[in-house]
């Protein structure tokens, strides 16, 4: 199953490298939203909860683009039928899609987080980097699991471009709460009380719940 997932993932990465459909669009979107926040809030630099909120809301909105394109090639070019006609476990498809989305998010963040630090963040990133990376990774994992499930769920609906974000964003609220709350002390001007453990714990719980849940229900999607 891992091998099949690897095959599907490699195919998806190859398609993305060739068509450049998702990652550039997501990256461009985050940069544009930073500019919008600069003018919308009329602030040159942000810190604390405002900074952490802007960063996370922007990243989650960008993930919507990735999720709504995630199954586009399968749906439009018969990939789902092809998978059903092959001796392949459906869970492999979920794993491949979640891993693909995770890599897309990492690629976006490699540009988007430094850009945020340069454009909007008041205090330097410097010492907080390891903590921030841990939060980003756990956050990405959650978005990837929920996104791979929601993308498949919305893929059959006629208004899928609308259904996918409307399903995804409320489901991401607990993830946003944990990520934003965990990041907030890292972005403060002066060091304050941190409560990283609690939020990382909640984030881990969220990731575990959604990965298990998705694996459990994914078999019922994309069938005849």
């Amino acid at each position: 199953m891992i091998r099949t997932a690897g095959t599907i993932l490699r195919k998806d990465l190859r398609l993305e490298l060739r068509t450049k459909e998702s990652v550039p669009a997501m990256t461009l979107f985050t940069l544009t939203v930073y500019v919008l926040f600069h003018f919308g809030l009329d602030r040159d630099s942000l810190d604390g909860d405002l900074a952490s909120g802007v960063l996370w809301v922007t990243l989650l909105l960008a993930s919507v683009i990735g999720v709504s394109r995630l199954y586009a090639a399968e749906r439009e070019q018969g990939g789902v039928d092809a998978l059903l006609l092959a001796p392949v476990d459906r869970t492999a498809l979920f794993l491949a899609k979640a891993a693909g989305l995770l890599l897309f998010l990492v690629a976006v963040e490699i540009v988007a987080v430094p850009a945020f630090a340069i454009l909007l963040l008041g205090p330097g990133l410097g010492g907080a980097l390891p903590e921030l990376l841990a939060i980003l990774m756990l956050g990405n994992l959650g978005v990837a699991a929920v996104g791979a499930l929601v993308g498949a769920l919305a893929a059959e609906s006629r208004a899928r471009e609308l259904t996918a974000p409307l399903l995804l964003l409320p489901l991401l609220v607990p993830l946003l709460i944990s990520c934003a709350q965990a990041t907030e002390p890292l972005f403060r001007q002066e060091q304050g009380p941190e409560d990283l453990g609690r939020w990382l714990g909640l984030l881990t719980l969220y990731d575990v719940v959604f990965v298990l849940l998705s694996v459990a229900v994914f078999d019922y999607l994309l069938e005849d």
Binding site: L149, L153, V173, P174, I177, L202, Y206, V217, Y220, L221
Partner: peptide
Amino acid sequence: ARYSSVFAITAGAFVPLNFVAV
């Protein structure tokens, strides 16, 4: 029916999780 059920299960599990987070 199948897709609705998948939604109902996902959202049903989300209810307590979301409550804890908020």
